[in-house]
C-alpha cells in the first residue's frame, strides 16, 4: 500500500476515556483465566496523532479455531461497527500486561503485522494490577521504520553487521509514544456529574511494604539476565568457531601452496565459514532487561517518596 511509504511520524496517541473503561472491563473479566486479555483498537489518524475511539476484545481462540474463524470474528465486528457509525479502521491492538511482563517476541510479531498494513498502528500495554492500586498505566509502542524493513526481510537479517549499519540498539527497537486521554464534551458533562467518593478510592499502593514487589521484580530481572548470558554465550561460541575456521583455512592454504586456487572450489564446500548468529533474540532480551531496570527505577523512586511522606507524619510524635 502506498500509504506505508509515507513515513508520517506519530507523535502521540490520544485515547477516549470510553476505550480505557472498555479495556479495563475486558481485563477484569479475564483476570481469572490464564490467557492475557487482548483486543483490537480502532480509530483514525489526525495530523501526527493516532486517535483511538473504540476497541473490541478478542475471545480466547482455542486450537480448534482456525485462522478463518479469527478472520470471521473480526469481519463481523467491523460490519456491526460500520452500521453504528464507529470508526472502523484498525489502529492497533491492546494487551493486558500485569507486572509489566510482556512477551516481547509476540509483541514484535503483532506490532509488525499491524504496522505493515496500517502505518499508524500502535500497540497498547495496560497494567491492570497498577490500575487496581490507583495508578492508571498505559504505554503505547511502535516499531521504528528501520526495524520494520529488516524484520520484513526475515529474522535472519539481524546479523551483527546489519544491526550496526542500521544504527539500531536494544534501546530503540520499540519507540514509546506518549499517551493522552481525551473525552468529548458530552462525556465530560457526565463525568463532572459523577460523585466519586474519594474515600473509596484505591490507595493500597500507599502501603510501605515493598518487599514482595521488589523480590518479584528482581527475580524477573535475574531470569532475563540468564537469557542474556545465554545469548552472549552463543556469540562467543561463534567467534571461537570463526577463529578456528580461519586457522584451518590458513593452514590448508600453506599446505596446498600453488594448487590452492584449483582446489578452492572443491574445498569451499567444506570450508565454508560458520554462519553468523542471528542477533534478533539478543536485541529483544536486552530490551526486556532494560525495561525491567527502568520499571525498577520507577518503583524505587515511588517507594522513596512514600517513605518520606511517612516520615512527615511521624516526625511530630511524642
Amino acid at each position: 500500500m502506498s500509504r506505508a511509504e509515507i513515513d508520517v511520524p506519530i507523535k502521540k496517541v490520544s485515547i477516549d476515556g470510553q476505550v480505557i473503561l472498555q479495556i479495563i472491563r475486558h481485563c477484569q473479566s479475564e483476570r481469572d483465566s490464564t490467557d492475557l486479555a487482548q483486543g483490537v483498537l480502532l480509530g483514525m489518524l489526525v495530523d501526527n496523532c493516532t486517535e483511538v475511539t473504540y476497541c473490541f476484545p478478542f475471545p480466547e481462540f482455542t486450537e480448534a479455531d482456525t485462522d478463518n474463524d479469527i478472520e470471521m470474528y473480526q469481519l463481523d465486528m467491523m460490519k456491526y461497527l460500520r452500521s453504528i457509525n464507529m470508526d472502523h479502521m484498525q489502529v492497533g491492538w491492546y494487551r493486558a500486561s500485569p507486572f509489566d511482563l510482556n512477551v516481547i517476541k509476540d509483541m514484535l510479531d503483532s506490532q509488525y503485522t499491524y504496522q505493515k498494513q496500517i502505518h499508524e498502528s500502535v500497540g497498547l500495554l495496560f497494567d491492570p494490577i497498577k490500575a487496581a492500586q490507583g495508578n492508571l498505566s498505559m504505554k503505547a509502542y511502535r516499531l521504528s521504520s528501520k526495524v520494520m524493513e529488516m524484520y520484513g526481510q526475515g529474522s535472519t537479517e539481524f546479523t551483527v553487521n546489519s544491526i550496526l549499519a542500521a544504527g539500531l540498539s536494544y534501546e530503540n527497537i520499540f519507540e514509546e509514544i506518549p499517551v493522552e486521554i481525551r473525552n468529548s464534551s458530552l462525556c465530560n458533562v457526565y463525568l463532572a456529574q459523577l460523585k466519586l467518593n474519594h474515600s473509596s478510592a484505591p490507595t493500597s499502593y500507599l502501603t510501605l511494604g515493598t518487599d514482595s514487589h521488589l523480590e518479584k521484580s528482581l527475580r524477573l530481572l535475574s531470569e532475563s539476565l540468564d537469557e542474556l548470558h545465554q545469548e552472549a554465550g552463543k556469540l562467543s561460541v561463534y567467534h571461537k568457531t570463526l577463529r578456528m575456521h580461519h586457522q584451518k583455512q590458513q593452514s590448508l592454504l600453506k599446505k596446498r601452496g600453488d594448487n590452492a586456487k584449483a582446489r578452492d572450489d572443491d574445498d569451499s564446500k567444506q570450508n565454508r565459514p560458520p554462519p553468523a548468529p542471528y542477533r534478533l533474540d539478543n536485541l529483544l532480551v536486552a530490551n526486556q532487561t532494560n525495561k525491567f531496570c527502568q520499571e525498577l527505577n520507577q518503583y524505587v523512586s515511588q517507594s522513596f517518596s512514600k517513605l518520606f511522606l511517612a516520615e512527615a507524619l511521624e516526625n511530630n510524635e511524642s
Binding site: L309, L313, N316
Partner: peptide
C-alpha cells in the same frame, strides 16, 4: 493542632518531591 503539623510537614515534603 496535630492536623496542622501534619499538613505543614506534608507540604514541605511535597514541594521537595
Amino acid at each position: 493542632e496535630r492536623l496542622l503539623k501534619w499538613k505543614n510537614n506534608l507540604h514541605l515534603i511535597r514541594k521537595n518531591l
